[in-house]
């Protein structure tokens, strides 16, 4: 009975979605805001990657809200999982250990590259932060006895979050709106350009990386009980 009701709901839902989109101006959307942003972004923000200009420049408050949601989710996850008791398990084999040692610096460089070039090429703080978190988690796979220091992760996360808000507040002192990009936006396409956007993305990257790394460490730890 429940399955029949579910199937009916799904049929109706897919029908509705298909019909609604049949009426959309599909493939040629009336992009009023998008058009305006594309014309204004190169001179107003100076980021070659317009998505970055939207994420950090025009809708920076959204990104701050997203960071808070991620922070709340990671904190709640850590709270629900409770205190960890450390890891057990055999250390990885020779190939895993050597591969991890080889990959760790490369992933670090790749993550930092993606973070720092977020305003020029696809990428940015979120993607780079995830790569950084994975880079710091990899050694734990090879050597389960070691552990990342939670204190340091918390310090990095707190400092990065504060830096994001401080950069936002600094715009207030100049008489502009919260999170307005600061500084001169320089030459379009240069590494040091688009004002404070790279700094904001660096803060985002560090925060996301530290949060996700601590989450991964908590998830990979052993249960308190037997199991």
């Amino acid at each position: 009975m429940r399955n029949i009701a579910t199937l009916l709901l799904l049929g109706g839902l897919s029908f509705l979605l298909l019909v609604i989109t049949g009426g959309l101006l599909f493939g040629n959307p009336p992009m009023l805001i998008g058009q305006g942003i594309q014309q204004a972004a190169p001179t107003e923000v100076g980021a070659a990657n317009i998505v970055t200009a939207v994420v950090l420049g025009y809708r920076g408050l959204d990104t701050l809200g997203e960071l808070s949601i991620l922070f709340a989710a990671a904190t709640a996850g850590g709270l629900v999982l409770g205190s960890t008791r450390g890891r057990s398990g055999r250390p990885g084999g020779f190939i895993l250990r050597t591969g991890v040692d080889l990959l760790f610096p490369l992933m670090l460089v790749a993550g930092l590259y993606v973070v720092m070039h977020g305003h020029l090429t696809p990428g940015g703080g979120f993607q780079g932060g995830v790569i950084l978190a994975a880079a710091f988690f990899l050694p734990l796979l090879a050597r389960p006895q070691e552990s990342l220091d939670h204190t340091w992760l918390s310090v990095i996360e707190a400092l990065a979050g504060s830096a994001f808000i401080a950069l936002g507040l600094a715009a207030l002192f100049e008489g502009r709106a919260f999170l307005t990009p600061l500084f001169d936006h320089g030459v379009l396409g240069a590494l040091v350009s688009s004002g404070s956007l790279p700094l904001l993305y660096l803060a985002v990257g560090l925060k996301v990386g530290a949060e996700l790394a601590s989450l991964l460490v908590r998830l990979s730890a052993d249960d308190e009980g037997a199991s």
Binding site: V54, I69, A73, A74, F126
Partner: peptide, 18 residues
């Protein structure tokens, strides 16, 4: 349009947190 892309960018990261 860059605006939906920026929204989805944040949605994906929130998704993994949730």
């Amino acid at each position: 349009d860059p605006v939906p892309q920026a929204m989805v960018l944040t949605a994906i990261v929130i998704g993994v947190g949730v």
